[in-house]
Structure formats: C-alpha cells, structure tokens
C-alpha cells in the first residue's frame, strides 16, 4: 500500500500557514491593527478547514493540538487557549461537514462559523485572564467583523487551488 503524500503535506502546510500569519501581521501591521478595525490573520484555519473538507488526513486531532501548542508557545506565550480551541474546531468542522453536501457555499459557511468560534473563544479567554478590557460590542464591531472579512476573502482566493491540491494528493492514496 502506498503511503499518502498528504501525510507530509498537511502538517507542513499547517506550520507554514501558521508562520505566515505572524509574518503578515508584522509586515502589514499598519493595515491589520488600525484604531477601529483589528484583523487577526487565521490562514492556518483556512488550511485546516480545506484539508478536513477535501483531503484525507490521518490524526487531525493530534495535528490540531500540536498547531495549537505552537501558536500558544510561539506567539502569545500563554499556553492553553489555542490548545483547547483547535481540537474543538476540528470536531465542529467534521460534524457540520457530515450533514451537508460539499460545495463552495458550504465550505464558506463552515469557515465562517469556525472563525467566529475561534475569535470569540480566544477573546473570551483573554478577557477572563484580564489581558483585555474591550467590551463585547466593541469586540464584535472592531475585531470579529474585520477578522471574518479578511479570512473569508483569503478562503475565496485559496478555495480552488487548495481544493485541487487536496483532491490530487488524497486521490493517490487508493491507487
């Protein structure tokens, strides 16, 4: 039996998109972190959702936990938030995808829900440990909205290339 190439591509892509988030946030800090619109780049979630929908991945929960830990250790220095949220996202995505027929709109919807959940829980945890004092209404208007817009735009751009990519390399597996 041939080993799927996805076994290497999926974690590598996850790490790459995770790092790109940080690099983009630094390069375009002036555009991302404005006084009343803050964008949290979550390209790795786009990668994760596309992979779960179109690829055949071994141990998605394990990789989600590892990616969460890398995010926490490398970016925030507070271990825990992403470590808890990412496996939940994998579970949610699998759950929703099982009931719906795959199409562009469905994936967009799943990604929308996932990013809303991530951003809200992330805010909730940071609010709980008083690292932020932003009110809920400010959070929805200034962070959630722009974050969704940016990440969904990224999904729209990356949808076709990523779909082709995952279908190509997952298809090899049965051969």
């Amino acid at each position: 039996m041939r080993i799927s190439k996805m076994r290497y591509f999926f974690p590598l892509g996850l790490l790459l998109t995770l790092l790109l988030d940080g690099i983009f946030s630094n390069l375009f800090a002036a555009e991302f972190f404005r006084p009343n619109s803050m964008i949290e780049s979550r390209l790795f979630v786009v990668w994760l959702v596309m992979a779960l929908c179109f690829g055949e991945i071994d141990h998605p929960y394990l990789w989600a936990v590892i990616a969460g830990l890398i995010f926490d250790i490398y970016y925030t220095g507070i271990i825990g938030p992403m470590f808890m949220i990412l496996p939940l996202i994998v579970y949610l995505t699998n759950l929703m995808y099982r009931f719906l027929t795959p199409s562009f709109i469905v994936v967009l919807l799943i990604c929308l829900i996932d990013i809303t959940v991530i951003t809200t829980l992330f805010y909730g945890i940071f609010f709980a440990i008083s690292y932020t004092s932003v009110s809920l209404s400010e959070f929805i208007g200034e962070t959630l909205g722009p974050t969704l817009a940016y990440n969904l735009a990224a999904l729209v751009i990356l949808y076709w290339p990523l779909k082709k990519f995952f279908e190509e390399f997952s298809g090899n597996r049965s051969v």
């Binding site: 940080g22 946030s25 630094n26 800090a29 803050m38 949290e40 780049s41 490398y74 992330f122 805010y123």
Partner: peptide, 10 residues
Amino acid sequence: VTARTPSSWQ
C-alpha cells in the same frame, strides 16, 4: 523582528 502575534489582545 521575525513575527508579530496575530491577535488583537496582545
């Protein structure tokens, strides 16, 4: 500078 935390809270 290699990266910036992609988060509004930090």
